[in-house]
Every structure is written in structure tokens, then in C-alpha cells.
Design a protein around this nucleic acid. Structure first.
Length: 188
DNA sequence: CATGGGATTGACT
DNA sequence: GTCAATCCCATGC
């Protein structure tokens, strides 16, 4: 998907990414859960302004922002909105598509449903690391492409974002309705 | 320079 | 349901 796709309000990009495919290192999955983050709102890393950590978020749209959470997990975001605005879409869950055996090997052979049902899980399954921070999502190594044949625009459920304390009331989480591969049920 | 707080997960009770 | 693991980096003294 080209950079202009991401050069829009992050609240449009986040639901539009549902059904698209994330691909890296021989494995891929269909996005079934996203969350929007924006520098105007305190749950976003970009809320603190432009720092070395948030530079990618304020950079041009269509790149990957990868950061470490709880000292352990890598999180994948798609940088959105024009350069100078700190906004991104957190990819929270995938439905495994290709390279299932490879993903299972990376994750220790768990059942299909638990392979990518969480932001830290899917980066582990796809082999995405902090080294991928800033990479171009059109050319890779981490690639996001449009919905595979047979996938129409899926029905979307909206809810509150997960695991945050600030701005927790905003309904900025988007899930494919009824998907069995979500990280948690949709809640408001 | 020291400190503290996470956009989480998995193991255990 | 509870809880530790583990590290980056923004903030404050």
C-alpha cells in the first residue's frame, strides 16, 4: 500500500487497515484488530512531542514505528497523517495466513488462535524486531498490502483501547466483527 | 545521574 | 485473578 493511504486522519486509516495483510520473513497474516494513537491525546507516545523515541511517529506516513513494551515485547505501528504530525495505528492482532508453521515455530507451537492474538505475539510470530523501526511499509522488510482476493471490507466493531490508563474512554479500537483471532473481546 | 512508568505476555494460584 | 520479567527513555533533581 502506498504512502498516500496513510496520509489521512488516523481514525480513517485504523479501520481501513482491517482485512489488509502484514508480511515479514516468510509469514503473513490478515489484520483483524487495530488501535489509533495521535499526538493530541495522552495515551500516545507522541503526546510528549518530538524526541528521539518518537521521531518515527512524527516522520513521513507509511513507515513502521516499532518500540519495546514492558522491556520485553516489540509493538508494530503504521505511521499515519502528514510528516510533522505524531500519529500511528497499532496493529494488535492478525489472522494467520501464510507461513503458519514458521510462525508456530517462532512462538513455540501454540494453537492457531494464539499465534497472533496480541500486539507482542504477532511481532514474535512474524519475526519483527526493533531493527524494523522506520522501515518503509510498501517496500519492506515489513510490508502491508491490500486485502487478499475474497476479502471484502469486513464489518467493524468499535471499542475502547486496551491496556492504557490515559484517554481510556476514547473509542479508538477497531476489530473485525466476530473474528476469533482478537486479543480480547470488544468493550466500551 | 537516578527514577519510574508502561500501547504485554505467560506462568501460576 | 495475580504477578514478575525486563528495558527504553522522558523527566526531574
Amino acid at each position: 500500500m502506498n504512502p498516500s493511504f496513510y496520509d489521512r486522519p488516523v481514525l480513517e486509516v485504523a479501520p481501513d487497515l482491517l482485512g489488509c495483510v502484514v508480511e515479514h520473513a516468510g509469514a503473513s497474516g490478515i489484520i483483524v484488530e487495530t488501535e489509533a494513537y495521535h499526538d493530541s491525546e495522552p495515551a500516545s507516545h507522541a503526546f510528549v512531542g518530538l524526541t528521539p523515541r518518537t521521531a518515527t511517529l512524527f516522520g513521513p506516513p507509511g513507515r513502521a514505528y516499532v518500540y519495546r513494551s514492558y522491556g520485553v515485547h516489540a509493538m508494530l505501528n503504521a505511521v499515519s497523517e502528514p510528516e510533522g504530525v505524531g500519529a500511528g495505528v497499532l496493529i494488535r492482532a492478525l489472522e494467520p495466513l501464510d507461513g503458519v508453521e514458521l510462525m508456530a515455530a517462532r512462538r513455540g507451537g501454540l494453537p492457531l488462535r494464539s499465534l497472533c492474538s496480541g500486539p507482542g505475539k504477532l511481532t514474535q510470530a512474524l519475526g519483527i524486531t526493533l531493527a524494523d523501526n522506520g522501515c518503509d511499509l510498501q517496500h519492506g522488510p515489513v510490508v502491508i498490502r491490500s486485502r487478499p482476493a475474497g476479502w471484502k471490507r469486513p464489518p467493524v466493531s468499535v471499542g475502547r483501547r486496551i491496556g492504557i490508563t490515559k484517554a481510556a474512554e476514547l473509542p479508538w479500537r477497531f476489530c473485525v466483527t466476530g473474528s476469533r483471532f482478537l486479543s480480547a473481546p470488544v468493550r466500551l
